[in-house]
């Protein structure tokens, strides 16, 4: 059993493509996945898309999933990460035409902490991912290692460097 017993119970159901299992996994993970994607993309709608796409990919890959609930959770974060990277790459290729929002319309990029957003944007993608997975997604070092394809010791070292840089950037603003 992993530290996610509720997820552990759903892994078999996911492999069998049970709708109930998918719904439970979604309920248990969607907020964490969405928060991470939101941190990566600064856009709520795009973050929701990244999460949805991850679950569609899970639906396709379900029979091949191995391991326990922790593995499943890492799989989903990994998928969301890839979806975010795809979205960021797409934005670089086709920069959106800026449009002026209506006065009362909430801005989609509604990250109130602009300094934090700018500082995060100056980290490398990998650093940003680690910081967000740790502090927004709530992942352990071991889980982050699974998501980014590294080992726990390397993750802790990289995470410490990333946090140091982020603090430095924030203090400089």
């Amino acid at each position: 059993m992993s530290e996610y017993p509720e997820l552990d119970e759903q892994v078999d159901g996911v492999r069998r493509r049970s709708e109930a299992a998918f719904a439970t996994v979604y309920r248990l993970t969607a907020d964490d996945l969405l928060s991470y994607a939101y941190g990566m993309l600064h856009d709520r709608t795009a973050a929701e898309d990244a999460v949805q796409q991850a679950f569609l990919e899970l639906a396709r890959a379900a029979p091949t999933i191995r391991g326990d609930g922790r593995t499943l959770r890492a799989w989903l974060f990994r998928s969301v990460r890839y979806n975010c990277l795809d979205e960021l790459r797409r934005r670089r290729r086709r920069p959106e035409t800026p449009t002026d929002p209506l006065p009362d319309e909430p801005v989609d990029d509604d990250v109130a902490d602009v300094d934090l957003r700018r500082a995060l944007d100056r980290l490398t993608e990998r650093q940003r991912t680690m910081v967000l997975l740790r502090h927004v997604g709530g992942l352990s070092g071991e889980e982050i290692a699974r998501v980014v394809g590294s080992n726990r010791v390397a993750v802790y070292a990289a995470l410490a460097r990333a946090e140091r840089r982020l603090r430095h950037l924030l203090e400089a603003t």
Binding site: D31, G39, E48, D113, L116, R134, V136, L166
Partner: peptide, 17 residues
């Protein structure tokens, strides 16, 4: 501090579906 940074990140990006 590290915990202040963590709290600031959560406040900015922690959202619910």
């Amino acid at each position: 501090r590290r915990d202040e940074l963590a709290e600031r990140l959560r406040r900015a990006y922690r959202v619910e579906m």
